[in-house]
Design a protein around this nucleic acid. Structure first.
Length: 324
DNA sequence: GTTATTTGACCTAG
DNA sequence: CTAGGTCAAATAAC
């Protein structure tokens, strides 16, 4: 398939992609039209991780992402939150920095002062699995989103203060299929994150759902390995301490993605992107480098990941990633 | 006592 | 002005 190999892409290329997405969408609309007269088909589709509805949702997301990222009205879009070398938390600008120099503000320096995440490298994934991506995340917010039934949860890298890692992710249940999640990764990990091996959160895992896949834009869908056969249903290992430098009232944190879920957090912690490929992806995107589709290969064979990824569909893998 | 999560407030981009 | 991303005090969990 055509892949990210050609990035950075020209504007016409992105426009073509957006148009292609919409054309593909028409195919799904036709399918949907067929299904309208057959309720059993609709029911089946809604329960499918790779059904028409799910794929349509992904298609629209991708088309919009391509559209927005390429700024199709002709104005070039320059990323404002590019890769930065790790820096200490203390190495930040004065409080008014964000106001005086908004365009180039690399990190939030004042409460509420930040660049919209769309300007950073962004990766969007649809998944139904609850597995760890190898990174330590800490929840820092939860918001009700307009026209969305489900709240969005915000996570940042646990090493944000320790190593200045700016990676964040958002997790939200999809409206079309609440058992699916849309996970948006923003920024890239600049932390030295090797504290633990990926694991799966089994509590919310539906073992009957054997459609979890990792594809990362590869052409060949991964094997549908059952989660239960790949991972023992264990929770996390003891948490390493997060040695954040003292920052006034800032408290020390523990690296704990295992404890993300609480009775209040319906989405719980879930991740699905293997750590190393993610790093590669993010760097490649941020640096506007070429990305080999091989970099997106799942380590499923070694780690037993199971991802429900819309990119398993050959036609849509190209549009999985939302650039800038 | 320490650390993580919750949640209302704050702030900015659009 | 609104929606959404983040902060940080309060609270919960361990």
């Amino acid at each position: 398939m055509e892949s990210f190999l050609s990035w950075p892409e020209s504007l016409p290329s992105r426009r073509t992609k957006a148009l292609q997405e919409l054309r593909n969408g028409k195919v799904f609309v036709d399918k949907l039209q067929e299904m309208l007269g057959r309720p059993e088909k609709i029911e089946f589709d809604l329960q499918s991780d790779n059904g028409v509805v799910v794929q349509m949702m992904g298609m629209f997301d991708n088309a919009l992402s391509v559209y927005h990222s390429s700024n199709l009205n002709g104005n070039p879009h320059y990323p404002t939150n590019n890769v930065r070398s790790p820096r200490s938390w203390d190495d930040q600008k004065p409080k008014d920095y964000c106001k005086s120099n908004r365009i180039v503000t690399p990190v939030k320096t004042k409460r509420g002062c930040y660049n919209r995440r769309k300007s950073a490298s962004t990766i969007v994934k649809m998944t139904s699995t609850l597995i760890d991506d190898g990174y330590a995340w800490r929840k820092y917010g939860q918001k009700t989103i307009l026209n969305s039934k489900h709240q969005r949860n915000y996570y940042r890298c646990s090493h944000k203060f320790e190593q200045g890692c700016q990676a964040t992710k958002q997790v939200q249940k999809t409206d079309s299929k609440p058992s699916n999640y849309k996970i948006t990764y923003n920024g890239l990990h600049t932390c030295n994150n090797s504290q633990r091996a990926p694991q799966i959160y089994m509590e919310d895992l539906d073992l009957n759902d054997n459609s979890f896949l990792i594809s990362f834009g590869t052409n060949t869908p991964m094997e549908n390995n059952k989660v239960g056969t790949c991972f023992p249903p264990v929770k996390h290992t003891p948490k390493p301490k997060e040695n954040r430098p003292s920052l006034g009232s800032l408290k020390h944190e523990q690296v704990s993605s295992a404890n993300y879920h609480t009775p209040y957090d319906p989405i719980m912690e879930l991740s699905q992107v293997p750590s190393e490929p993610m790093s590669v992806i993010s760097y490649a995107l941020d640096c506007e480098d070429m990305v080999s589709s091989g970099a997106f290969s799942s380590p499923c064979s070694t780690h037993g990941y199971e991802i429900d990824d819309i990119s398993e569909n050959h036609e849509y893998g190209d549009f999985l990633f939302d650039l800038w």
